[in-house]
């Protein structure tokens, strides 16, 4: 099988100034990550807020320059492709639809932009394709005439999805594509994404906080913590037997619709990890309930578990 996305030893650091007198800090957002996504499959990525998921997405889209390592998309080096070719190959759907839609343009013009930028489509063709995709994502022609501020959050997210799919790219990087939507509309959009994948053979990288959604759409799931993949496995296996203590904590934190049960305290503590100060040893050790002495000074190496499964934990 050919890989649609190949990422090798990818690293991304940000330099942050913290006031006049204090020293510059280095935030390591993506820390030496290696993986590949087979063409036609869906890699789901879950993980703590701020662990580097969006940064990883931006690196794969070529919107950020890595500090180290490389990205191959469809077998080609990302930076060898010109912008138009890249746009036909890979498209994003971002988390925050308000920030990613130009507030001064009508929805239908925003959706038309990727087509217009190619410079090879006639006016009539652009109109036809925009009409089609708006209909597929469930926006009426009247909605197409509106400005982004005149739509609800969910309607804006549909517009962002329409814009990403209008060029029929091979690969779509979805960063929280449905977190702004209610369950019913979310289901409609996810079913649409699944149909398009089947019909057009698309590959998705799918970042989401909603574990049920990831379980439904992903072929494989990677769990990210402080810039690294700490566990990866086929979807069924990961949900059935989570091995990494952080993965287990994630699954235990899900709020099922059962009234009266309250919000669980899964014992991770109230202190969040700090990417400018990654702990030595296992990066999860200050919050890990089963940590042993070894975890405090020895970094766990990736251990292959099943044909495709991987976990970074001394005790897994």
């Amino acid at each position: 099988m050919t890989a649609a996305i190949e990422v090798e030893n990818l690293r991304c650091e940000f330099r942050v100034h913290t006031g006049l007198m204090s020293a510059e800090k280095r935030v390591v957002a993506v820390d030496d990550v290696t993986f590949s996504v087979p063409a036609g499959s869906v890699l789901g990525i879950v993980g703590e807020s701020g662990c580097g998921k969006s940064t990883l997405a931006r690196l794969i889209l070529g919107l950020l320059k890595p500090t180290g390592g490389g990205v191959l998309v469809d077998g080609k080096r990302l930076f060898d492709l010109d912008r138009k070719a890249r746009a036909r190959l890979i498209q994003p759907v971002f988390q925050d639809p308000f920030a990613s839609l130009n507030p001064r343009r009508r929805i239908k013009d925003i959706v038309a932009l990727p087509l217009a930028a190619q410079g090879t489509f006639s006016r009539a063709e652009i109109e036809r394709r925009v009409g089609n995709i708006l209909e597929r994502v469930g926006l009426s022609a009247a909605m197409g005439e509106r400005m982004p501020a005149q739509l609800s959050g969910g309607q804006r997210q549909r517009a962002a999805i329409a814009r990403a799919l209008v060029l029929e790219p091979r690969i779509v990087i979805c960063d929280e594509p449905t977190s702004a939507l209610d369950v019913s509309v979310q289901a409609q959009i996810l079913n649409l994404l699944a149909d398009l994948r089947r019909d057009l053979g698309l590959t998705y990288l799918f970042i989401s906080h909603n574990l049920a959604v990831v379980e439904h759409v992903a072929s494989e799931v990677a769990v990210m913590y402080l810039g690294r993949f700490v566990e990866r496995n086929e979807t069924d296996a990961l949900f059935r037997t989570p091995r990494h203590p952080y993965t287990q904590a994630l699954l235990q934190s899900v709020l099922t619709p059962e009234p009266g049960k309250g919000v669980p305290d899964i014992g991770l503590g109230d202190v969040m990890p700090d990417p400018s100060n990654i702990p030595p040893g296992c990066r999860f050790n200050p919050r890990c309930r089963i940590a042993v002495e070894r975890c405090r000074h020895e970094t766990p190496a990736p251990m292959v578990r099943q044909p495709r499964g991987m976990v970074e934990c001394h005790l897994a």
Binding site: A212, E215, H216, F239
Partner: peptide
């Protein structure tokens, strides 16, 4: 009732079936 019936719960997701939704859209 429709809304409550389409909440997906991890571990109980049927992967080979489309996610449940309320057909149609809110009318203008």
């Amino acid at each position: 009732r429709g809304l409550l019936s389409c909440v997906p719960v991890p571990g109980r997701v049927q992967r080979d079936r489309p996610l449940g939704s309320i057909p149609g859209v809110v009318p203008a």
